[in-house]
């Protein structure tokens, strides 16, 4: 356990000065910032009706912008950059001759990736909330200061926390696929290209109303657009599929990394 913590800290040190950390910060700010600009530009269209909590609609539209195309690509790019540090520096051969097991290396890399994604979600939420507050400071009719961001305080099913958890689950499948691809493929652009192709196929299936879209890991984030929670289950079918994909690919990539992959 101690070695895993050391390895995790080392992974954090490696991303110092790298673009991966900037991608998390800038990526988290990107949609909230442009959404805010759009609201400022067309503010009359966004004014809520009297007595209506503005946060619900604000979050719905904002997160639609995040989940449609942007989130899968950001995750793909983040993983590619994170693991490309080792390819670019030619350091796999160095890591694999250090007195630390491959299992710990694998898990510490996964942990750093999940930490960065959680950091992305946290920052994005902070930016969205700040955007709402700024709008109300600018024009009080937006009512963001009168109402609370109710997504936080409603039932577990519709709470913003629950929504974020589901959004995170929606990216797990493609995260596992690209984690595997990223340590196997040295070519950063090929890696990103595969992610881009996956996202384009997902959008095409979405527009074409394909029912089988729920099986495509690249489409899971897209299906979070205008998300309505399942009345009977906590996780919808596409989220369960993303989770299953994650578990299977995670196990396979672990076996590959620890037994076959030589760097």
């Amino acid at each position: 356990m101690n070695e895993l913590i050391i390895s995790y800290r080392v992974e954090f040190k490696k991303i110092k000065n790298s673009f991966a950390i900037w991608l998390v910060v800038l990526g988290a700010a990107f949609i909230p910032f442009f959404f805010l600009l759009n609201i400022i530009y067309q503010w009359k269209d966004y004014l809520p009706h009297a007595g209506v909590n503005p946060w619900n609609e604000y979050f719905r539209k904002g997160f639609n912008g995040v989940h449609f195309f942007f989130l899968p690509l950001l995750i793909v790019l983040l993983i590619a950059l994170l693991l490309n540090i080792e390819h670019k520096s030619n350091t796999w051969k160095h890591i694999f001759v250090l007195p630390i097991s491959k299992t710990k290396i694998f898990f510490s890399k996964y942990l750093i990736l999940i930490s960065l994604i959680l950091m992305f979600y946290t920052l994005m939420l902070i930016f969205f909330l700040s955007g709402g507050l700024l709008l109300s400071l600018w024009k009080s009719e937006f009512n963001f200061l009168i109402f609370k961001p109710t997504y936080f305080y409603h039932s577990v099913e519709s709470g913003i926390g629950s929504f974020m958890v589901k959004s995170f689950i929606s990216v797990l499948g493609l995260m596992a696929i690209h984690f595997w691809l990223s340590f196997r493929l040295k070519n950063l652009f090929l890696n990103i290209g595969i992610g881009l192709a996956g996202a384009v196929i997902a959008v095409s299936m979405f527009i074409g109303h394909w029912e089988s879209i729920i099986y495509l890991p690249y489409a899971s984030p897209l299906l979070m657009c205008n998300f309505i929670p399942d009345a009977h289950r906590y996780l919808s079918d596409f989220l369960i599929n993303s989770l299953i994909c994650f578990v299977i690919i995670f196990i396979l990539s672990y076996i590959d990394f620890t037994r076959i992959f030589k760097g």
């Binding site: 050391i6 390895s7 800290r9 080392v10 040190k13 490696k14 110092k16 000065n17 790298s18 540090i85 670019k88 520096s89 030619n90 350091t91 796999w92 051969k93 160095h94 890591i95 001759v97 250090l98 007195p99 630390i100």
Partner: peptide, 29 residues
């Protein structure tokens, strides 16, 4: 591997980090 130090082909270095940080990474592990 606890007892071996190695340098294979060109050195494996994180170019975006300082020389000190590169050493500190291996030192910690």
């Amino acid at each position: 591997f606890t007892r071996i130090g190695s340098l294979i082909e060109q050195p494996s270095l994180y170019e975006h980090l300082s020389g000190y940080d590169n050493l500190d990474i291996t030192r910690a592990i």
